[in-house]
Amino acid sequence: MKYTEEHEWLRVEGDLIVVGITEHAATQLGDVVFIELPEVEAMVAQGDEVVVIESVKAASDILAPVDGEIVEVNDKLVDKPGLVNDDPTGAAWMFKMKVDDLSVLDEFMDEDEYNDLIA
């Protein structure tokens, strides 16, 4: 698992990258009540706002961690946004991306580095 400074986790699954938000981010957001997911097949650039996530308190954006194509989204979250609080690193994955080269993940933090960031 790799981590971004925006508190996303990135996991490799075959030739895809699965993206979600960390436990720390879910806790900070509080109870999630709404999620808007990107269109499948959308081509996105690193830093694009791809997911809107709203908690009882506020709205925030999830950014595309790398350039690539959205190939699958987790539709379950639309009806059950609270999954983000219940299981942020498992059942509440948000989208899967296809990238040119999985080595783009090398630039991201590993778990120890991420834990230092949020400590």
Binding site: G30, D31, V56, K57
Partner: peptide, 12 residues
């Protein structure tokens, strides 16, 4: 205090 560990939803 904006919330306690229970969270806004549970507190409400």
């Amino acid at each position: 205090p904006v919330q306690y560990p229970a969270g806004v939803m549970a507190e409400h």
